[in-house]
Structures are given as C-alpha cells and as structure tokens.
Design a protein around this nucleic acid. Structure first.
Lengths: 121, 121
DNA sequence: GCATGGTGACAAAAAGGTGCGTAATTTACA
DNA sequence: TGTAAATTACGCACCTTTTTGTCACCATGC
C-alpha cells in the first residue's frame, strides 16, 4: 500500500484486496446495504479502527460507497458500487477454486521433501 | 497465516493469496517452468529470502510444484500445479476487473464528504 | 571464487488491536 | 426535574503481532 501504481495491474489490485478483510467485507456487503455496526456483527473479530480503515480503503478504490447521514446518533451506510458488485462473482470464483482444490492440499502433505526425480544434463 | 482454517473459504484463500507476491508469482509461472533465479529476474524487488518463503507457501497450498535436482550448482524448478493453472484465469479476471474500473476510481475523487442525502425517519 | 538455492539471526515496516474521547439525542431512574 | 448512561461512527495515541527485508553464511563443482 505505498504507491497504488505499478507496472502490472495485479500488483495494484492486490494492494486493495490483500489482507484479511477487504474480500470479506465485499462478501458481506453483497447482501445489500449495511451499517457500520452490521459489518462488525458480521465479523466480530475486526476491530472498529481497522474496519473504518478498510472501508475507507475500499471506498477510495471505488469498491464501496459510503453514505453518511447527519444527526445523532450517527448513521453511515455502506454499499457496493457497481464496480464492487462486479467484483463479487470473481471473489466467489476464487472461493470456489479453493474449495475444489482443498482436498488435494490435505492429501499431499509434508512428506515429499527433495523429490530428486531426474539428474538432467 | 495462523490457522489456515476458518468458517468461510474466502478467508482461507486470502491467507494464501494475500500479499504482494503470491499472485505475481502465479502470474509469472503461467508462462511455464521457471527456476529460482528466473523468478528473481522476473521480479527484481523480491528479496531472495522472501521468494523462497513465498514459494514454499504456494507449494504448501498446492499451487506450485517444486522440483529439486541433485548436483551442483543446485537446480530447482518451479511449475504451477493443475490447481495453480486453474487459478490463472481467475487472477486474470480480477486483473481485468481492475483495469476496467480504474478510470472510475480517478474520476470520483475525494470531494464528496458527508453527502447528507436524506434525513430518514 | 563464482554460481546456485537455501538457511538462520536480526531489523524494519506494515498490519492489526486496545482503549479512551467526542458528538447530539434518547432512555433510565431516582 | 435532574442526572447518568447508552447509542453510533469515528479519531487519536499507543502497543503487539505479523510480514517483509537485510546480511551473512552454507554447500559444491567448475
């Protein structure tokens, strides 16, 4: 998260989507408008500070729309932008990919060290 | 990267794909077999040590296949596993998504603070 | 003595967390 | 009637944990 500028787009997206929370927040927001407290309930392990920071990051990236209402108690709503909505199926796809390839991971365990297959030239 | 176990798959994948390097390494490996030094050339900013650690992580996740040959100088080859190959189009899709939504990001800038649209109830 | 892929000790930086303060209004209750 | 507390979203200061990086060093055969 230094520049948000790099040669290849993957590096840039990852500056936004890397970390524990961004994808998770998108995931929870796909159900529709949520308030700050809703998102905290959805994921009780985020600290309030990190949640605000992450939401701001996603807002800056154009993934999340933040709408603040005046008056007390404060009220702020978060939604996915169209861009954010477009991201949802992609995250789902990666999620599916993981689930499909998870069995392979647990099967091939840590036995295979230094396979030494050929000697080659 | 504590447990690699969580309620929802997204959290798990992100433990593997989060960070600057994992997706980038997959990206470079999609061209085919690469040796350690090749990957360093592809991305000169990874430190040598981090590269080994990241590759190990991807290997453990079943994304990358590591093949070590005996003899000196040492020779180690890295390839994508079938799972890793399956991941490539997904990363590309996210990459494309970013490129398509990049203009929107620079257009909507930081002017809109406290929009105060309705007052609601 | 260089090249290859790697390790371990340690330092720096980033990510994440805790807890307190703030605001205006409502509710609790004595 | 007066006061205390809760509510909501957040900023700030400080701290811990995790990640990433630097540096030196190993192994061996040409």
């Amino acid at each position: 998260m230094k520049d948000l500028v790099s040669r290849c787009p993957i590096e840039e997206v990852m500056q936004v989507l890397s970390g524990r929370w961004p994808t998770l927040l998108v995931y929870y927001l796909k159900d529709g408008t949520k308030r700050f407290a809703d998102l905290r309930r959805d994921n009780p392990t985020v600290s309030h500070r990190i949640l605000t920071l992450e939401l701001r990051k996603l807002e800056a990236a154009g993934v999340v729309q933040r709408t603040a209402f005046e008056g007390y108690p404060l009220r702020v709503e978060y939604d996915l932008t169209p861009a954010g909505l477009a991201l949802v199926p992609l995250i789902d796809a990666i999620s599916d990919w993981w689930e499909q390839n998870a069995p392979a991971r647990s099967a091939a365990s840590d036995v295979a060290e230094m396979p030494t297959p050929q000697v080659a030239s």
